[in-house]
Design a protein around this nucleic acid. Sequence first.
RNA 1: GGGCGCAUAGCUCAGUUGGUAGAGCGAUUCCCUUACAAGGAAUAGGUCACGGGUUCAAGUCCUGUUGCGCCCACCA
Length: 874
Amino acid sequence: MHCMTSAEPFAAARPGLGADVPERPALEGLEAKWSQRWRDQGTYDFVRPDSRAEVFSIDTPPPTVSGSLHVGHVFSYTHTDLVARYQRMRGKRVFYPMGWDDNGLPTERRVQNYYGVRCDATLAYDPAFEPPARPDPKRPISISRANFIELCLRLTATDERAFEDLWRQLGLSVDWRTLYSTISPEAATVAQRAFLRNLARGEAYLSHAPTLWDVSFGTAVAQAELVDRDYPGFYHRIGFHRPDGSLLHVETTRPELVVSVCALIAHPSDERYQPLFGSTVRSPVFGVEVPVLAHHKAEPDKGAGIAMCCTFGDLTDVQWWRELNLPTRTVVTRDGRLQAETPDWLADPAPYAELAGKTTYSARQAMVELLRQSGDLDGEPTPTMRKANFYEKGDKPLEIVASRQWYIANGGRDQALKAALLARGEELAWVPEYMKHRYDDWVAGVSGDWLVSRQRFFGVPFPIWYALDDQGEPDFDHPIRPDESALPVDPMRDPAPGFDPAQRDQPGGFTADQDVMDTWATSSLTPQIACGWERDQELFDLTFPMDLAPQAHDIIRTWLFSRVVRSHLEHGCAPWARAALSGFVVDPDRKKMSKSLGNVVVPSDTLDRFGSDAVRWRAAMARPGTDSPFDERQMKVGRRLATKILNASKFILGFPGLDPAGWSLEQVAEPVDQAMLASLKTVVEQATAAFEAFEYTDALETAERFFWTFCDDYVELVKDRAYGGRGPAAAQSAQAALGLALGVLLRLFAPICPFVTEEAWSWFQTGSIHLASWPQPDEVDPGSVTAEVLEQASAALIAIRGAKSQAKASMKAEVADIVFRGPAASLEALRLVQADLKAVAHLVGDFSWVEAEGGLDASVELAPVEAAPPARTD
RNA sequence: GGGCGCAUAGCUCAGUUGGUAGAGCGAUUCCCUUACAAGGAAUAGGUCACGGGUUCAAGUCCUGUUGCGCCCACCA
């Protein structure tokens, strides 16, 4: 529609104000027009005030840029924006940064597929390298770590531009000057600094221990990243040999781990096995002597009631291994295969040749064959569907391998710290409140410290080196750390302090820690990154601890918890005052949207077709914490509201000779005009209270309910008068009331529908509506007047319309008589507005008034069509 | 197995401190009406999942049951 082609962004023309109002207002083009204007004018720039109290700061979730945004993201980011816009209009300086979570595995995987490459850390950097024009992900080209990281940066830059475009189209009022990314040098500095301080305080430590391991990504995985999935397998009933030659049967889904068996374990109270506790049996095929032990974690009703404890089949094995001091007999290596060398604990090592070097899957087949040959397989394997742990981004079950990893204390092994972290959860305000239970449950159940190291490439490196002894063996007990002033460092590029680069990997020299931090280890510091911790003290003092942490409810155990951990350890406080949890957008069958299900709704299409204001309206209708099904028809409702806002504004601003300067409460003299303002005043109070409680849905519903009644009833009622049908003074009262109401309504809707409200605002106001002040009740306070007159008039109008509708007549059909029956007070109210009612009803006769008990009743008699006088001349 | 949440009109959801069941969508019947036909008006539609209890009064409070969703645990 491009109604405003003038060069002046805010034409302040008055009284020729009608010139700015388009003939046919339309939604198309508003996003492009206003997002550009907001960008050019820095509408949402954070301007530093003098005191912390004037700031509202938001810890925006940095989206994973290698993934794609779906309509659920659009909803939850809109929820945050609603609050940001409200707070800004309340006069707060809103610190609303955006970040990109671009480091980590998702990016690596995307780069591998996109460019057809894989990282080989042993290769040297090739400055001339260019990715193939026609990538073949099935035959990846090996490139150096530095080349790989270059490609990661290149691809994320492209992705990030697309994300930014989408957020701008949606109208997020973020300050794009404060954009950060988790792989940036600034973020790396924060991550390394925080880690070094954790290390200095003893909160971070290196430990060689059994670790959950993803064999396809070749990296350790943290507890918070586990998901369990169904995984098909077979029960194998196999016999262990008692000294007397009889067999003790166990059932296992992982017979290949017989080579690693350390004990058989049953419940202490299990009478079947009590006689065996303390005795030993010999494993089938390999003849290893293992004890039969008791432990309460064994479950009598599972399998044969006695479990094979191997190092390591699952997390229970790890617990048994620790608590029962069992030997370590690991054979599964980091690539998911059984080790090539024959283990030294086997009494009969020969059969191991059948397993050596095979994947666990192939080794399982081979082991079944060995068991069959030795006669230790009882019956045939029976199929079962079992649950197995997976890395949430992986597609093979996790193995448990022993490896050296970095951990950060998170209360999993320290009850005092756990209690302190639970107390931090108590300090937070939760929206909605019941989400706090999820935090409590997760923290209470954390069972080990936080594993933060990953054997990957595109991440923040640990700022650590190790001295090498004369044999070239690293001294892991005394990691070498840089000075904080040297950050960020890349130990694989930079030499250890006090060493010469030539001493790298030489006996007596140093070697780099090869690992990178997990993405969460960096994103756990988003408050510190965004607020300028140790980089911009003034900013940090103004913004930290932050006011609001918005996120979806699936992320409480990861991002939310990890930020509480880091803030507690570093600053001794919670990182924010309030946590707000958004629900998901689910598909119409209430299934979570996911790529694998193929039910993801791409947001750009929805935004293009319905307009951002409509989609935002729908998002605002989803209450905090509540999942809502995706339904396009709902978007149409929002679109209709947006259109209505434009049209109503156009109408109110369209009276000839209109002068907004004359819109004052003193001008509003007619009782029904005052009654409308009285009603609106209540709406302002309720919407404000709702926003203060972060209940944006209630704020919207309150404003919207009023707005539709305002359009349907009040505007219709006063239309004739506002055009001058009853003289200039009566017209001025209506126009002033309409204008005051418009100014308030546009601001009430501004957080929800920023584009149409800005557009309409620009037709009669200077400056952005988003920097205007949130409406105050006293702006529309008509004194002691109540809304009674308008309510009675609405009831009368509905009765009149109903009569015409029932008679299948046009709304402008003429009415012969209207008889009102009702209590004296109602009739009195209606008499005050009878002139307006007469006009809107097209009443040619007169009203009759009959006092009666009960509610108001109107009987309407239409004028006979054939007898109707000619329509009024126009 | 534990925790949390949900169950109200065909659909999506409101329902304040207990006091005559609400909205929108959809359906139906209409209306070219000079802000809006990509619109507007009106009408119909509900044993508030089920069983107990408290109360003068329960959609609302207590309790039990069933079903659904999410999170966690277990996965021999």
